[in-house]
Amino acid sequence: MLRDYARTIFFERSREEHYMKKLLREFSKGIFIENPTFRLALGLCPTLAVSTSVVNGFGMGMAATFVLVGSNIIVSCVRKFIPSKIRIPCFIVIIATFVTIVELTMKAYFPLLSKSLGIFVPLIVVNCIVLGRAEAFASKHSVANSVFDGLGMGAGFTLALVVISAIREALGNGTFLGLTILKGFDPALLFILAPGALLVIGILIGAVNYFTEKQHGA
């Protein structure tokens, strides 16, 4: 009985033929087609705030991925018990729990990273990507699917963060992961300051629009 139940929540669609393929699709959609940052414009606040260096961006991406996967698993597990009226507060509690875990772990093991990410670690709790995936995906799909969805979205978010922070670090500090790229290049300080973040994301969104348009328009 219990085993049957576990089976349904884990492998709801296990009879489908291309099961692994589907999982993979759940994973890859987050990176490209539904990239949370560039395509859906979700979770922009932390993206802009912490992308001053690649290390910060990657750290933030990893933290958010952990919270995404964790909360997706729990939400998906309990999705059958939670009355739909109070589901949002329940999701928030689940997410907040994982955020607290990340917060304390980071403080203990990566104190420097924790310091430079500042209040944006606790702010993962109000990151629309996390709540959005819990509500739109995990509360309707099996655990396995939700895990891959969380991983994919997390990877997409991390990728976007790394891209943006690589651009900003290179232009604004002349470095990549702290290593000098080009000797004699005068970095433009603006890019690691607030206006630079808004500028880079604006141009990147424009570029993504341009290429999608080209692809569909031709």
């Binding site: 414009a41 603006l190 300051l193 607030a194 206006p195 630079g196 973040a197 808004l198 500028l199 994301i201 604006g202 141009i203 969104i205 424009g206 570029a207 629009n209 341009y210 348009e213």
Partner: peptide
């Protein structure tokens, strides 16, 4: 506004310029 920049993209550019003024 050039078509790919319409909407969100140009909004961020405006925000960036405003942010420069606030600097």
């Amino acid at each position: 506004v050039p078509r790919p920049m319409k909407g969100m993209a140009i909004a961020f550019i405006v925000a960036s310029l405003m942010s420069m003024a606030f600097m």
